[in-house]
């Protein structure tokens, strides 16, 4: 189970080119839009860490 999950995450992260056998989501699926949107939001949420925060009053 963990091995399969690891393979799926490696595929999602671009570490492997071929999808695992159990990974049924096709490249043309609309669900990939959600994945890319969530990734963009996650990148934005954490990109502030390069800022020099001194005042944090809210």
């Amino acid at each position: 189970m963990l091995k399969k999950l690891g393979e799926a995450l490696e595929y999602l992260g671009g570490a492997r080119d071929a999808a695992p056998a159990e990974f049924s989501l096709k490249l043309a699926s609309a669900w990939w839009g959600l994945w890319w949107g969530a990734l963009l939001a996650a990148i934005w949420v954490f990109s502030g860490q390069s800022s020099k925060f001194i005042y944090i009053d809210f």
């Binding site: 990939w32 839009g33 890319w36 949107g37 939001a41």
Partner: peptide, 21 residues
């Protein structure tokens, strides 16, 4: 992948960004 499929995916991602705003 057909352009239509890409357009749908990009639209959904864009919608998420709008919701984030």
């Amino acid at each position: 992948m057909k352009p239509r499929a890409f357009f749908i995916q990009a639209s959904i991602a864009l919608l998420l960004i709008v919701l984030y705003n």
